[in-house]
């Protein structure tokens, strides 16, 4: 038994004896292979499906200038339907910017505290609680936006409606914060401890160590954390739909209601005839979203790879 694999030059061990071990081994190898490539299959499958549904519209009807530059989204107009996404793009962008303005300082601060200052128990508890934040379903966040933030914003800022850029931005910021925090914390943890020791031995205080050594060393990881946060905020649907007011306007201030790209698809897709122009236009938006989040994630991934190769 124990001599057979030692002699095999290829390492493809027990090639000669097809006993039970051999079959079990082969079975699990194949099973794991299928699991491994299924991710690729699904991504390609989803892309093909979304593209197929939207392709006809993009190739034949779509006016590119109108799609990207017109704020008028009137898919149901009987006489002259227009498919402009500019207002939605502006809305999504505004909400994303506000959410990052809220999430980034908090998340990076939290990550610095957890990775560099917190000790033992505190650190473990904080990590668990922050991960719990990530587990709250988005419809619950939307509910909070609708029922708590809405009256709060109306009262605090004396504005007529609280379902607006600010509301959706705060909600999205809170939703993106746990992801940003945990990736940023990983980035800090990846900084070798010898750097901290070296800087402290030179007389640096903890804060000097953080901002003169740790932050520069972790900056790529932080950038990628921020990008993934942007991706999260950008692609979120339900909470935005509930908290943003769903009004088709280019926002002039944070107190304007907006409509997000994702929310438009969610709200309208169920009520359009399959295959109609409207239906296909919604899929065109889907392709647009898909492309942007894909680019964001790829960029984040390349940045992370950049760290490892340093």
């Amino acid at each position: 038994m124990n001599t057979r694999s030692d002699l095999s030059p290829t390492g493809n061990a027990a090639g000669d004896i097809r006993n039970q071990d051999w079959y079990v081994d082969k079975f699990f190898q194949s099973a794991m292979f299928v699991c491994g490539i299924s991710a690729i299959v699904f991504v390609i499958g989803i892309f093909i499906f979304v593209f197929k549904e939207g392709a006809g519209f993009i190739i034949q009807q779509m006016d590119w200038a109108e799609f990207f530059l017109s704020p008028k989204w009137r898919p149901t107009s009987a006489t002259q339907a227009t498919y402009g996404t500019l207002a939605m793009v502006a809305g999504t962008a505004a909400v994303t910017v506000i959410s990052m303005a809220i999430a980034l300082p908090f998340s990076f601060g939290a990550a610095i505290y957890i990775a560099e200052f917190a000790q033992g128990r505190t650190r473990e508890w904080l990590k668990v609680i922050i991960e719990m934040l990530a587990a709250i379903p988005s419809v619950v966040w939307g509910f909070i936006g609708l029922m708590i933030m809405n009256p709060l914003i109306i009262e605090s800022f004396d504005v007529p409606i609280g379902l607006n850029v600010l509301n959706a931005g705060i909600i999205l910021g809170l939703m993106a914060a746990p992801i940003i925090t945990s990736i940023a914390e990983d980035a800090f943890k990846a900084v070798p401890d010898t750097y901290r020791e070296a800087a402290e031995a030179l007389g640096a205080t903890k804060w000097q160590v953080v901002y003169k050594v740790i932050l520069p060393a972790a900056k790529n990881g932080l950038l990628s954390a921020a990008l993934l946060g942007v991706g999260r905020a950008f692609g979120e649907t339900m909470a935005v739909l509930m908290a943003s007011g769903h009004a088709l306007t280019i926002p002039g201030s944070v107190f304007d209601s907006i409509r997000a790209l994702t929310a438009t698809i969610a709200a309208e897709l169920g009520e359009t005839p399959v295959g109609s122009d409207h239906y296909q236009a919604l899929f065109a938006i889907g392709i647009f979203l898909f492309t942007i989040t894909f680019i964001i994630n790829m960029t984040a991934d390349f940045i992370v790879r950049g760290i490892k190769n340093q």
Binding site: T194, Y195, E197, A198, A201, K212, V213, P216, A217
Partner: peptide
């Protein structure tokens, strides 16, 4: 202090 493994800072 000089350490066992040279540890210049990543700057």
């Amino acid at each position: 202090m000089v350490f066992q493994r040279p540890n210049p800072l990543p700057i």
